[in-house]
């Protein structure tokens, strides 16, 4: 018998076990929990009759599913603007900075060495009524009174999240741009393509895997985001994730929270399935 190469199996077993225990198993437990009538009884007891009443509550609640759509919209805006801003950044790093690229890349990531909370508090200082932006607007005489919408609004949530995600999107785009064979660009130039044309026909398509990876990497966690809305969202800034958190936290109603989380998961999966159908991703990722 031919001797099998076990290396891939061994290498895969670590992450697989990790994912199974900390991702797949909790997901299954959550699905089971969402069918449980309430929290009464032991945590892992199976002494209850499955029910769909939590799913009914969510549908009949009327406000929850529309809020999920709002969250999806916010996540889309954040991912879109973060990608839009990150692309030129990554492009500049790859094509214009030469040997200084690693240093500039480090500078880009530098803010992430400080705590997330600290950076959010910095944003509060920037966006607040007595903050940097409002002070400047008042000083320039553009407004008479501070603009309150800058902080404690959904806009503030979007602005903050775009900032938070920007470097994360820049990294995969940076990697994708770096992989591009420069001779292709030379060929385009030799064949008479102006710079914008070779960008549109060569650089952009070849960097699409990075763009899509960056977009998805931002979109997915942002749909379930709940920390930033608490800190800068104000009274009208709550997202779907905040309601899930409310039921798991203060509510101590894990069955309802599980049902809400699963609906979100399924919603995002369906959305992606549709997106993949509409946009032939394989064409980009090849």
């Amino acid at each position: 018998m031919q001797r099998r190469n076990l290396t891939p199996l061994v290498l895969m077993s670590g992450p697989s076990v990790w994912l199974a225990i900390f991702f797949v198993a909790p997901l299954i437990l959550m699905a089971i929990f969402s069918l449980r009538p309430d929290m009464r009884g032991a945590l892992f007891s199976l002494d209850w009759t499955p029910t769909l009443k939590h799913y009914e509550t969510i549908v009949e609640g009327e406000v929850y599913l529309p809020l999920l759509l709002v969250s999806v919209r916010v996540a889309f805006s954040v991912a879109f603007f973060a990608t839009l801003l990150a692309y030129p950044l990554a492009y500049f790093l790859v094509f214009r900075t030469g040997l200084r690229a690693p240093l500039l890349l480090t500078l880009l990531i530098l803010p992430f060495w400080t705590s997330y909370l600290l950076r959010i508090i910095a944003w509060k200082i920037i966006l607040g009524t007595g903050g940097v932006i409002n002070s400047l607007l008042m000083f320039l005489g553009l407004v008479d009174a501070p603009v309150p919408i800058l902080l404690y609004s959904r806009l503030a949530v979007v602005i903050t999240l775009v900032y938070v995600w920007l470097p994360f999107v820049a990294l995969p785009i940076y990697a994708a741009l770096q992989r591009i064979d420069r001779s292709l660009l030379e060929a385009a130039t030799i064949l008479g393509a102006p710079p914008w044309f070779s960008f549109l026909r060569v650089t952009l398509p070849l960097s699409m895997p990075g763009v899509i990876a960056g977009f998805v990497m931002v979109f997915i966690p942002t749909v379930g985001e709940f920390v930033t809305p608490i800190l800068v969202g104000g009274s009208r800034g709550a997202l779907y994730g905040n309601i899930v958190e409310l039921f798991f936290g203060d509510g101590i109603n894990w069955p309802l929270g599980s049902a809400m989380a699963l609906i979100m998961l399924i919603g995002v999966l369906v959305l992606f399935a549709v997106a993949v159908r509409l946009v032939d991703v394989r064409r980009f990722i090849g």
């Binding site: 309430d38 929290m39 009464r40 509550t57 609640g61 406000v63 929850y64 529309p66 809020l67 709002v70 709550a238 779907y240 905040n242 309601i243 409310l246 039921f247 203060d250 509510g251 101590i252 109603n253």
Partner: peptide, 18 residues
């Protein structure tokens, strides 16, 4: 628990309201 569940749901619907 029933009362608390009702209150939490009320508060969730306040925050989720359009």
């Amino acid at each position: 628990r029933e009362i608390r569940d009702g209150w939490i749901q009320l508060w969730a619907e306040v925050q989720a309201a359009p």
